[in-house]
């Protein structure tokens, strides 16, 4: 089997995917254990920040050659939403604006469109970053100006 729960290739599983889309530690939890399976989830298009999901997924074992940079690997492939609900709490969470890309330098994942600051996730989905404190705005502007150059 694969991952810490010894999943079989092709096995159907249920996962909890929470509202903190793209946050540090954003990993699906395998049911009924409520623990990370240590296998990445792929193909969950349509996931929206702020919503908790119970989904179905299928374990897919990678049988190709191993790449120097880690390359593709075993994964859980999204196979449908069982339920979704809007998150109503106000818990804060952390987002990394720097991403390491192998091979290459670390990248700051931030751009400005008009007056909006945009961050994008590894899936390609984008999220706007807003602020109330003007000091945060000036820091984002500094990052963006440095990034642009």
């Amino acid at each position: 089997g694969y991952g810490r729960f010894n999943l079989k290739d092709g096995q159907e599983v249920e996962l909890l995917v929470d509202h903190k889309y793209g946050a540090i530690g954003d990993v699906p939890l395998l049911l009924p254990y409520n623990e990370a399976s240590e296998l990445p989830l792929s193909s969950f298009t349509g996931r929206k920040p702020g919503y908790n999901y119970k989904i179905k997924a299928r374990m897919s074992a990678y049988k190709g050659p191993i790449m120097m940079d880690g390359g593709p690997g075993h994964s859980l492939i999204f196979n449908g939403i069982i339920s979704e609900e809007r998150y109503l709490g106000d818990e804060s969470f952390r987002l990394s604006l720097v991403r390491s890309v192998v091979p290459g330098p670390n990248l700051v994942i931030l751009r400005k469109e008009g007056e909006k600051f945009i961050h994008w996730l590894e899936t390609g989905d984008e999220i706007e970053l807003t602020y109330k404190d003007p000091l945060i705005g000036s820091k984002l502007e500094e990052i963006w100006q440095f990034n642009k150059e």
Binding site: P49, G50, D90, R94, S96, V98, N106, L129, I143
Partner: peptide, 30 residues
Amino acid sequence: SKWRSITATVTHDQENFGRAYLIADLNFME
């Protein structure tokens, strides 16, 4: 990049729910 890490502490932006994160704090490590 100039920064080794930039971490934003965020919540959901209630005025733009599902589309935006509201930043409460930014931490830099050069």
